[in-house]
C-alpha cells in the first residue's frame, strides 16, 4: 500500500512536489479570493491618487522606516475609532503600493493624521520631536529640511505606479516635476496645474514654511497631511452606521 510513499522517499522530486502541494493549497485558497476582491472593496468615486510630491513624501516615509513604529490601519474597535477616527476601509489603501498598515504602535496610528496638525507643527516635530512633545522617543529628522528633493525622475515613478494599476494619466506623468514645484509653491505659475490634474481639494502650500526649492521636508509633510484624506468614504461609512443605530 505504501509503495507510493516509498517512491516519494526514494525519488526526491515527487517528495518535493508533495511538499509544494501540501503547503501550496493553503496559500492559494487563502489568497486567491483576494484577487477577486475588487468586487468586495467599497466603491469610492471621490478617491484620488497621490500627487508626485505626496508620493515622494511617501517614499521618504518608507525610506526612513516610519512604518516600523506607526501603523496606518484603524481597527474596528471602539477605543481605536474614538482615538484615531473612523476605522480604515480597504478602498482607502487601494493605491498604496506597498501598503503601510504597519504592525506596531511605538508611536500613534497615522491613518487619519492628515489635517490634524498644522504644517508648522509637523516641521517642528520632525526637526526636533521633543520640542513639541517633550516625552516623545521619536528620532529627530533634521536632514529633511536641508535636503533638496530629487524631482526629475518622478515621472518615471508615476509611470511605474501606473504599470501596477494606479490610474495616472499621461499628463500627470509628463508634468510630474512641474507639479512637485507647483504644489509646494502656491504663488508660482505652476501651482494651478496641480489643482487641475489632482482636484481642487489638493493641498497647495509651502509645506516646510519656505517657498522656493522643494525639500524633502515639503514632500514628507505633504504626504502626512493627505493621510486619510484621499477619500471621504470612511467618514461616510461612519455616518451611515450612525444613522442605522
Amino acid at each position: 500500500m505504501f509503495g507510493f510513499h516509498y517512491k516519494l522517499e526514494r525519488h526526491t522530486i515527487p517528495f518535493v512536489l508533495a511538499i509544494i502541494f501540501v503547503a501550496g493549497i493553503g496559500g492559494i485558497v487563502e489568497i486567491a479570493p483576494l484577487f477577486t476582491i475588487g468586487e468586495t472593496v467599497e466603491e469610492a468615486p471621490d478617491m484620488r491618487v497621490y500627487t508626485p510630491l505626496e508620493l515622494a513624501g511617501r517614499n521618504i516615509y518608507i525610506r526612513e522606516g516610519c512604518y516600523a513604529c506607526h501603523s496606518q490601519m484603524i481597527r474596528t474597535l471602539r477605543d481605536e475609532v474614538e482615538r484615531y477616527g473612523p476605522y480604515s476601509l480597504a478602498v482607502e489603501s487601494q493605491y498604496d503600493h506597498p501598503m503601510l498598515w504597519g504592525s506596531k504602535r511605538t508611536g500613534p496610528d497615522l491613518a487619519r493624521v492628515g489635517g490634524k496638525y498644522s504644517d508648522a507643527w509637523h516641521v517642528a516635530h520632525l526637526d526636533d520631536p521633543r520640542s513639541v512633545v517633550p516625552q516623545s522617543v521619536m528620532p529627530a529628522y533634521t536632514w529633511l529640511d536641508d535636503t533638496q528633493l530629487v524631482t526629475e525622475d518622478l515621472g518615471q515613478h508615476l509611470a511605474a505606479m501606473r504599470r501596477v494599476g494606479v490610474p495616472y494619466t499621461d499628463k500627470m506623468i509628463a508634468n510630474a516635476a512641474a507639479d512637485v514645484y507647483g504644489q509646494a509653491n502656491p504663488d508660482s505659475d505652476r501651482a494651478s496645474g496641480v489643482a487641475e490634474r489632482y482636484g481642487e481639494e489638493t493641498n497647495v502650500r509651502a509645506f516646510d514654511g519656505e517657498p522656493g526649492p522643494v525639500t524633502e521636508m515639503d514632500a514628507l509633510v505633504a504626504y502626512l497631511q493627505i493621510l486619510g484624506r484621499l477619500t471621504d468614504a470612511a467618514h461616510e461609512q461612519q455616518a451611515l452606521e450612525g444613522d442605522l443605530r
Binding site: Q94, P98, D153, V164
Partner: peptide, 27 residues
C-alpha cells in the same frame, strides 16, 4: 513581485496594493 522604476533605480513599486498587499505580506 514588484515593478522597478527603471533599471537604474533601486526603488520599486509592489505589484500588489492595499488589502491584497497586506494579505500577501503577512502570508
Amino acid at each position: 513581485l514588484a515593478v522597478p522604476v527603471s533599471l537604474g533605480h533601486a526603488k520599486s513599486y509592489s505589484a500588489f496594493s492595499g488589502v491584497q498587499d497586506a494579505m500577501t505580506q503577512w502570508w
